[in-house]
Nucleic acid binder design. Structure first.
Length: 277
DNA sequence: CGGACAACCTGGCGGC
DNA sequence: TGCCGCCAGGTTGTCC
C-alpha cells in the first residue's frame, strides 16, 4: 500500500500531533512488530525522550527523538497515527504497538498483515539497506537517473521498484509513471533512448507529486493519520484499470504480471521498442 | 547481474 | 451463507 506519496502524507500529518510530545512508555502485542532493539531495551531507551522532528527516507518514516530515531515501515497495511488515550480500540483491531505520550495522547501503529515494524536506532542505516536517490529532490536529475539505468538489462518496471536504484516508487506509481511516459513496463532499462529517460524521469516526479497533492491512494488499507482516505486512487490512469479504455488512445488497458507484480499498461501507446512509432 | 520463487501474515473478494 | 482459491500497495533471502 504505502509508497512515497502515502508515507510522505503520513509524515506531514504527524508533525503537529507528534512533535514536542514526550514518550512515557510503550506497549506491543506482536513480537516481530518491535524489530530492534530488544523490548526491554526499547522501552528503557525511549522513555523520557521527546519527538523533535519527523521526516521520510524512501518508504521509511523517521521520527527523531532526543537521542534516537523511531523508524517505522508501513509495508502493505501499516497505519500510524496519534489519538487521545481514550480513543476507542475497537475502531482498529490491528494495533500492535502504542507509545504513551504526555498530554494524554498515544502514538499507535496498526498493521493487519503484520509485515511492518517499528525500530529504535541511532541511524537509519543500522536497519536499512542501501537506498537510491530521492526522486523529488532537486539533485535527482535526468542524468542521475540515466546513470542508474546504464548497463541494466532488466525490465524498466523492475528497476523502478528497486529501492537501491530509486527511493520510494512502488507498484502503483511505477505503472502510472510508465503510462505517462509511454514506455512498456518490460522494456530493458538500458534500451531506453535518452529522450525516453528524460520523459520517464519527469513522469516519475509528476506522478509522485500528484500522489502527494491528493494525499495518497487509499485502495484498501492506507489511511491518513487523521483516519480519512486519500484521493489519488480517483485519478489513476492505469492502476487497477485493466479492461477500461486508455485515457490517451482509447485502447483497452491490460493487466499482466511483470517482476511478479500486477502490472497495468496500455498495449497501444506504451511502446515495446524505441523504434516503434 | 538477473530472474523466479518462497516467506513473512491477514483480509477481502469473486466464484460456486 | 459458506467454503475455497486467489489477490494484495513491500521487502528479504535463496537458489540457479
Amino acid at each position: 500500500m504505502p509508497e512515497l506519496p502515502e508515507v510522505e502524507t503520513v509524515v506531514r500529518g504527524l508533525r503537529i500531533p507528534l512533535i514536542g510530545r514526550t514518550v512515557q512508555s510503550i506497549w506491543h502485542d506482536w513480537g516481530k512488530t518491535l524489530r530492534t532493539p530488544s523490548p526491554d531495551e526499547f522501552a528503557a531507551r525511549i522513555a523520557g525522550q521527546t519527538f523533535r522532528s519527523i521526516s521520510r527516507r524512501a518508504k521509511y518514516i523517521l521520527a527523531a527523538l532526543d537521542e534516537d530515531i523511531l523508524v517505522v515501515h508501513l509495508k502493505m497495511t501499516g497505519r500510524l497515527y496519534v489519538v487521545p488515550d481514550d480513543a476507542a480500540h475497537e475502531a482498529d483491531r490491528w494495533v500492535h504497538f502504542r507509545a504513551q505520550l504526555d498530554g494524554e495522547q498515544q502514538l499507535r501503529f496498526s498493521d493487519a498483515r503484520k509485515f511492518g515494524f517499528v525500530a529504535l536506532v541511532r541511524r537509519l542505516d543500522e536497519i536499512a539497506p542501501t537506498i537510491g536517490p530521492e526522486p523529488l529532490e532537486d539533485d535527482f536529475t535526468a542524468e542521475v537517473f540515466a546513470a542508474r539505468l546504464r548497463g541494466r538489462r532488466t525490465a524498466i518496471k523492475a528497476l523502478l521498484l528497486d529501492q537501491a536504484v530509486l527511493a520510494g516508487v512502488g507498484n502503483i506509481y511505477a505503472d502510472e509513471a510508465l503510462w505517462k511516459a509511454g514506455i512498456h513496463p518490460l522494456r530493458p532499462a538500458d534500451g531506453l533512448t535518452p529522450a525516453e529517460i528524460v520523459a520517464l524521469h519527469a513522469a516519475v516526479r509528476e506522478v509522485l507529486a500528484w500522489g502527494i497533492d491528493y494525499e495518497g491512494a487509499s485502495i484498501n488499507w492506507y489511511r491518513k493519520p487523521d483516519g480519512t482516505a486519500g484521493e489519488a486512487q480517483d485519478h489513476f490512469a492505469v492502476y487497477d484499470r485493466g479492461g477500461q479504455p486508455c485515457a490517451r488512445c482509447g485502447t483497452t488497458l491490460v493487466k499482466t504480471r511483470v517482476a511478479q507484480r500486477g502490472t497495468h499498461y496500455c498495449p497501444a501507446c506504451q511502446r515495446v521498442a524505441s523504434d516503434q512509432e
